[in-house]
Amino acid sequence: MKPAPFEYHRPGSLDEATALLAELGDEAKVLAGGQSLVPMLSLRLAYFDHVVDISRLTELRGVTAADGYLRVGAGTTETAVGADLDVARAVPLLTRATPLIGHFQIRNRGTLGGSVAHADPAGEYPVVALTLDAEIEAVSAAGGHRVIPAADFFTGLWSTALEPDELLVGVRFPVWGARSGFAVEEFARRSGDFAVAGAGGGVALDADERVARAAIGLLGLGSTPLRASGAEAAAVGQRADELDAAELGRLAMSGLEDVPADLQGSADYRIRVGAAMVARAWAAASNEAIGQRAAVGARP
């Protein structure tokens, strides 16, 4: 046995879970799918006196469509997210990012909420949430219900705005309108590894084929998932077919402050890979949006 000893709790309901978190405070850690937490416990990168297992709370699972957004319950497994047709229709970026998470055996246990709450800077769902301006729903026994914009959620390496007594219960992803395209690209040394660098993006076009909305998210290029707001601003208002994706990729890399460096690659290398990933993701997303525009226009 490699993890340090802990006391195990398996609450039977959401209310029981939040009551436990209120009682145990920061001595407790929530266990969802365990695909990141268990390795950290086994490597003793982390230890907790109490582990609160929410993996059997069926009320945390499921996908629901609401006005203008799609809500994914925190306990929905990555496999279920990847296979969900409503997700594929409403939030294609989420569907396309899913196969890049680990391997199918990991996705069978790993959950959307667990991935977002774990907040790995190279994680796929955190960067999708940030890129699409998702809203994170948290509940606590004391404070009830709180909605946290993704832009305020990721506060540092593996750190979030969640309070110790709060439980992440769902994520709301805004649904973009027609004439939009999405893509995610990442480079990993081996299939399923955390990416050396990656990017996810969304492009929405107006009636004049100009970029009405641009979202570019970066993964593995800092201590949190990041938005390339400079590159986004440069793209908005431009004709999509005249934009230079490679130039946007370079622009997206400007101002990065804490690019990781390790055996997988230096910071300079990651920046070069990141620029290429942004360019690829932008080109794919942009082409998808342009294709939809042409199809609409081609109707008699």
Binding site: K2, V38, D53, F104, I106, R109
Partner: peptide, 27 residues
Amino acid sequence: CEHGACGACTLLVDGVAVRSCLMFAVQ
């Protein structure tokens, strides 16, 4: 590896393939 990288411990839980080093027995 005992931390979810190698896949040697893969088995089926309720018919679903998972890594048994990333799940506690109590679960």
